[in-house]
Write a protein that binds this DNA or RNA. Sequence first.
DNA 1: CTGAAAGCGCTAACAT
DNA 2: ATGTTAGCGCTTTCAG
Lengths: 336, 336
Amino acid sequence: MRVTIKDVAKAAGTSTATVSKVINGSHTISKATTDRVNDIIHELKYHPNSQAQNFAKRASMNIYFLTRLDKNIAFENPHMFEIMSGVQKILDKRGYTLSVKGVNEKEACAVVEQAVMQNSADAFIVHASVISRPLSRLLIESESAHIVIGYPNFESRLCWIDTNNHLSGEIATKHLIDSGFKRTAFIGGRAGDMISWHRIKGYEDALKEASISVPKTFLKQGDSTFHDGRRMMLQLLKLKNRPDSVVCANNYIALGAVEAIQSQGLSIPEDIALITFDDYPFSKTVEPMLTVVNIDVFDMGIQAGNYVLNKIKKPNFQVQSYTTLPELIVRESTRK
Amino acid sequence: MRVTIKDVAKAAGTSTATVSKVINGSHTISKATTDRVNDIIHELKYHPNSQAQNFAKRASMNIYFLTRLDKNIAFENPHMFEIMSGVQKILDKRGYTLSVKGVNEKEACAVVEQAVMQNSADAFIVHASVISRPLSRLLIESESAHIVIGYPNFESRLCWIDTNNHLSGEIATKHLIDSGFKRTAFIGGRAGDMISWHRIKGYEDALKEASISVPKTFLKQGDSTFHDGRRMMLQLLKLKNRPDSVVCANNYIALGAVEAIQSQGLSIPEDIALITFDDYPFSKTVEPMLTVVNIDVFDMGIQAGNYVLNKIKKPNFQVQSYTTLPELIVRESTRK
DNA sequence: CTGAAAGCGCTAACAT
DNA sequence: ATGTTAGCGCTTTCAG
């Protein structure tokens, strides 16, 4: 076997207890022995076995990240992985390991239950797509440190973090207004699309606040696809008194809208300005480059990680919700 | 504390050794006691503490996934996460945990070294972006089960898995040829882009094999951007004897090319057919929908996971390289 | 300030 | 077929 704490103790002429204390930075050990032990540790290239450490301490230094991990998810939901990356970054900094578990709602419960019983995880980061009432109960009753990524769609005492799409909608619209546009339209997703819905509400509130009123026909809703985005944009362009700017609820719609505008020989932003959400790499490859209201999801992951680590140390530290602020990235598509 | 093996032993009137054997499915225990013990286990809701199990067995049931995890990576490299998802799926099936480590080349070495010393990982899955000679040496000398995702750009005895871009290029080109196109062009990335380079070679070989020769001007190379894709496509269209079909080395270029073709009032595939690689969701949102030569990266992850698990069991099972086959997804853009 | 010793929960010879 | 017992490598009282 590798060099163990015993070897170090023997070589240093101390007990293993002393070595252990040195490793863990106890203040009850004299500088002299501390130095001696540390020298030996270096000399012997001793690395404490963290498995044994954790076992003895009844800790795991391990945090579970529960999410759906089905085929194509990386393409459909890169945000989730971006958050994961942010989380990993700060966990790593503090010596924690991130274990990724691909689960559905039901499996999530089983995994958490198991992990709680054998404390193989010090905390849980749960993507909203796998949260459920039973899991909520489990997390709360076991008093597990946790954070849900995304607002759970039911009442609970869970701690969660989410983006503020309403605010994003407001910021996008306000930017257009501030840039001097007076007739702003919105192309959104279908009724069930909550993200789009919140952005629409933000759009409406921003208009209201600026005392701007636009025709009801300026609000379009359809599928979140290139095709439907184009279709809806074309409808807007056919209006007798067409908009001078448009907010697109997402990238797919925006791409279609751009195409529609250019197909009519109009140009962005001269004839019509366009803004959308989320800074996908594609946003930068489109011509003109799109102004965007972005959420820094990596940073959101960092926040989630920090929260959960904090919670492990001080379990009574109680916060229920976080919200990450959107940021406006101005590019050509709204530059008058 | 939770219910332990001792509680079960006591309740069942056996020794802990017997319980342990039952848990691990030993065949030396009578059906009678096996049943009795299992009943007690259920009754007491006993869950073996896997930390203790692993510690005693000197195993970890843990596999590290080493990769860069910098900001924006989920948007820039969704493939990596798709592979990770595939890996996770099969590891989970076999009771292994996937621990994700965001590292650079140097950190990767440190992490592996540490993990080897305290066997906190039974295997390593290493993304090519963090592989290095020192890490290669480490992996080989410590005889660690491992697989590298992507072909390492240096000679080694590492085991790796990669896609075959040469073959992809051939398949794409052959599809065009088989569809009756005779004048196929290629728009690729710059010289340093190895992925593009292999695809170009595949294109050339497919033409050669079909005894088709095209003008040298049919091969364009530039930046992998919408902008440059469009620029190069426009050049192709200006040729006195323009191509009837084009292979685009990647999605960014393809998007620009589509735009260029349509801006000239030409249509796809009637005037010019177009094929590209990798089935991003965006590929389906473009009009017309793009025919694509795809790599099933999720499946690639599954293969990588299977290999590595296999390797853990039989360390002498020696395979050095895997290659995942591309698949052709025919859509409108090449349908004559 | 340091050390002895009793675990942490489970496994794995080795006996019986 | 089952039990005894000695660890796995480290931490943590509790004495000294």
